[in-house]
Design a protein around this nucleic acid. Structure first.
Lengths: 191, 191
DNA sequence: CCCTAGTGGAACATCCGTGCTCCATTTCAG
DNA sequence: CTGAAATGGAGCACGGATGTTCCACTAGGG
């Protein structure tokens, strides 16, 4: 390979394999939070050796899952356009955007170690945007002033987790859980 | 030992040791959900041998934690006297009773395997009492009919989890988190 | 006071996940 | 078609947790 290989974009095949392993890891770890690298390899239809090639140590894989999640959160937050409309409306859009990552929220609750490391220590842009949104709601009187931004944010996350658990355990259609989630959140923040 | 020893009440010392190990296990597992039996023994100020004497296999210990939790839930539910007063008032009492077990809720979220086994499969008396409470609220118009009993129950659990996480991560006094929890729940169920 | 239940510690075999190496095979781009 | 890239599989060493046994010790109840 040429000089500076580490900075060069990876070939298509490598990217695809990497994604497959990452996704398989999430699936396997949700099923059993102490899933083996061998389990993950099977889930990804890949040899265990290949997993080690992409993620030398287990912690590398876990870290990559966390970083990937962080990226998705960031993008979803952008898509929600939190500056537009009333605060409750924006919060509703955010909840809808986050909802599709429900399995990742579930995994993060079960494996707090995923959410460790430098990137998780400091506030992300998404964090700041959400806090700003709640504060805007406070200022405009559309969000209950008694509900602190950090509290609302944490409840949002755990409501998403709850919604997915509700779907799994009660075999309820996803949209129904999402609706309960949206309604519950709206009622909670309403002044 | 005499005939029927297994049915005989254990001596005081044994009961105390058993309790110590159980409590230490919860503490150690909250700190690190993959804590070693050796870690737990240290936390309990007990030899690892002793742990094995009380719980031959690791799964025995985990199972005992789950069963113990189930007992506590049961007792707390009884104390809350769910039949008395309006449904929202009773729900508030229930939340207050459950709140003290916050660490156990946290642990159960992180280790779903604690909540497996026959006792967890079927509905407990506590489950039925809570469902009946919500339904009473529906009938009397004091609880939003759109909030299904199972949903309310699950949200209650996750709000308790959230409240404790909120305390840990934002170094907020417990009573403040409890208040947020109670207010949030009350607003969600209000019609 | 005594003795017995209860305990602590050391030592041991075992199992399992991990990280690594080597080599044969497949795949894909030029 | 050809060679480099990518993969899969077997094998191996290592570490750490587990479960078990044995023995010495201590504390507390009769």
């Amino acid at each position: 390979m040429g000089v500076g290989e580490s900075a060069v974009a990876e070939t298509g095949a490598r990217l695809r394999t990497r994604r497959a392993i990452l996704d398989a890891a999430v699936t396997a770890l949700i099923r059993n939070s102490s899933a083996t690298l061998a389990d993950i390899a099977v889930e990804a239809n890949v040899g265990r050796t290949t997993v080690h090639r992409y993620f030398p140590e287990r912690s590398d894989l876990l870290g990559a899952i966390g970083t990937d999640f962080l990226d998705k959160i960031e993008q979803a937050t952008t898509r929600a356009r939190l500056e537009e409309g009333s605060a409750p409306e924006a919060l509703r859009r955010l909840c809808q955007e986050y909802f599709e990552f429900g399995d990742l929220f579930t995994l993060t609750f079960a494996m707090p170690e995923l959410a460790t490391g430098p990137e998780w220590e400091q506030d992300t842009d998404a964090d700041r945007a959400v806090v700003a949104l709640i504060e805007r709601g406070h200022a405009q009187g559309t969000v209950d002033a008694g509900m602190a931004p950090a509290w609302v944010q944490q409840v949002l996350w755990s409501l998403l987790f709850t919604a997915w658990a509700y779907v799994r355990e009660n075999s309820v259609p996803k949209h129904e859980a999402l609706n309960l989630c949206l309604r519950s959140l709206a009622k909670m923040v309403s002044p």
